[in-house]
Design a protein around this nucleic acid. Sequence first.
DNA 1: ACAAATAGCTTGTCTTACACAAACTATCCA
DNA 2: TGGATAGTTTGTGTAAGACAAGCTATTTGT
Lengths: 167, 167
Amino acid sequence: MGDSARLPFVASLPVVNQPLHRSGALLDHLARRMRLRAESVLAPLGLRPRHLVALTVLREHGGCSQQALAAMLEMDGTNVVGLLNDLETRELIERRRSPEDRRRHVVELTDTGLRDLAKAEFALAAAENEVLGALDDTQRETLYCLLQQAATGAAISCSAALAEDTR
Amino acid sequence: MGDSARLPFVASLPVVNQPLHRSGALLDHLARRMRLRAESVLAPLGLRPRHLVALTVLREHGGCSQQALAAMLEMDGTNVVGLLNDLETRELIERRRSPEDRRRHVVELTDTGLRDLAKAEFALAAAENEVLGALDDTQRETLYCLLQQAATGAAISCSAALAEDTR
DNA sequence: ACAAATAGCTTGTCTTACACAAACTATCCA
DNA sequence: TGGATAGTTTGTGTAAGACAAGCTATTTGT
């Protein structure tokens, strides 16, 4: 495909509301590096990175339907079923029938799930130290807050200690 | 291929303050959401997310050997070859023989590569607006700086975010 | 009351990203 | 000269995940 000059670049266009940099590739890159380490850390716990993602999302948005979860994870519903089967087998999550609509499953972390998630996160400290080694603790907390806010879609009062955000 | 750079970096200081939160899962989650959108945006440009990652890394660390690149991407050398073959075919990167060690290939972005990378990033604005919609421009720039700093492993002066400029 | 839509589950197929191994060439170095 | 190293090629295996078809239980609309 011979690529020729289209014209998305007009030299003197006022680039008003365009954020200066794209984070996508870096996000991808760092997530990969983290995932590689997480795999080996998580393996002895019988978990895989995507399980951690699901548990993490569920900790924040507990009590949602599987469809809602599939939408949040942006995963195909059928694959979410398998994911939840894993987690339910390990008793990390619970599927309860919704009383208002008995077709629906209300998915929620169990106490075990909450505990094992915390355990896993503790075990991942070393991995994170490697990947985020160039960031100090404050920066890491800022990063976490931004990611969390982006993930939940709402501004969240993370530690007020970081009085970073004042628009 | 020489040695694999997979040394685990000995458990560092038993520092008091273990960072409060783990970003790994969120990183994974957001990277996935971004990648899904990036795929469809990038497809018409003949690129895939991992190409973007490679180009992004090369823009920062241009002129390195393929092994160094493989180490940075934490990918197997043989797969990096294929990735670079793609990019070289499209003339986005160049492999030059290193003069000091003619076994080595010095990989670098071409002008086309630099331009197409910028083009792709421009095209990804909408995708990023969806995924990072909960962050305002300042927060996004902060996020970018943190990711960049983590990725390059060196502290970069981002505090004066808007003073940061061309490269 | 009954048809249609919906939530979830199961199975099975296909694609793709990778890791990994083996064998090869070109080059460097001792 | 012989061994180590950088890169390449080919080929194999695993796993994530998309997608489709067919199933049950339940709700909703007429």
